[in-house]
């Protein structure tokens, strides 16, 4: 492996950007390709497919054998609100392989006692998200009901193209939220990406059941990501 390729690949991985190491198994030469980099021909098609599926593997192109090692960032779940639902969601998200963090500036809610095993930031989303920005491989669930806390995170999530955005609240609450987001300059079509009311409709009643519904919706969005990405590719093609 070319040391320069290794460095480049590690930079991409640590920046949470999707990248692929392409190795020619015939001569051992390799190169790093970032998601969205143009690659012509049949090799380009194979690479685009690998990014969509996230599956690494060997491919034969033009009589040559290549190995494609796809590195997708691990999915992250950012929850705005250190509430009862978040308490139930934290252990479930960890089991499902999600790197979860909770942000809530209300120090009465955000206490380590209530959230022993999860990254907890007792800060405003304005500050916490500056240090660890949202990205396309992050899911965001806002559950405080308080526009002062929720709205900024929602706006950032929409602008960052998070693969999942959910917001707790009734349809009436959400209608008001949509108006506020429009006032911030977001268009109706992008605002429609917000899942509200939050969670798959499983008739959830208790906080733990709502947490199941939210996590299921997050997983569904992540697994459907390839379809959404494919549609975007078609549109831009």
């Amino acid at each position: 492996m070319d040391p320069y390729c290794l460095k480049k690949l590690n930079i991409e991985r640590q920046a949470r950007r999707a990248a692929l190491l392409l190795t020619d198994l015939g001569d051992g030469r390799d190169r790093v390709i970032r998601e969205g980099d143009p690659v012509a021909g049949q090799l380009g098609e194979v690479i685009a497919k690998a990014f969509l599926s996230g599956q690494s593997g060997v491919a034969a192109v033009d009589g040559r054998s290549f190995f494609l090692n796809v590195h997708l960032p691990p999915p992250r779940l950012v929850v705005i609100g250190a509430v009862h639902i978040s308490q139930a969601l934290a252990p479930m998200a960890r089991l499902a392989g999600y790197d979860m963090e909770i942000i809530d500036p209300r120090t009465a809610f955000a206490t380590p006692d209530r959230f022993p095993d999860v990254r907890l930031l007792a800060e405003w989303p304005q500050d916490a998200l500056k240090a660890r920005p949202l990205d396309a491989y992050t899911a965001v669930a806002v559950v405080t009901h308080d526009p002062k806390i929720d709205d900024y995170a929602l706006e950032q999530a929409l602008r960052a193209g998070c693969f999942y955005i959910g917001a707790l609240g009734s349809r009436k609450t959400h209608a008001k939220r949509v108006e506020r987001l429009q006032a911030l300059g977001l268009d109706e079509q992008s605002i429609a990406a917000i899942h509200a009311p939050i969670g798959l409709d499983i008739g959830a009643a208790s906080p733990a059941e709502i947490a199941v519904a939210v996590l299921a919706e997050v997983i569904k969005a992540f697994r459907a990501r390839r379809l959404r990405t494919a549609q975007t590719l078609e549109k831009t093609a």
């Binding site: 492996m1 290794l6 198994l25 599956q55 690494s56 593997g57 060997v58 190995f67 090692n69 796809v70």
Partner: peptide, 16 residues
Amino acid sequence: IATVIETWGSAPRPVG
């Protein structure tokens, strides 16, 4: 650097 590039059956570690 050693890399798993193909697996068949029940391989303990995934490709990559």
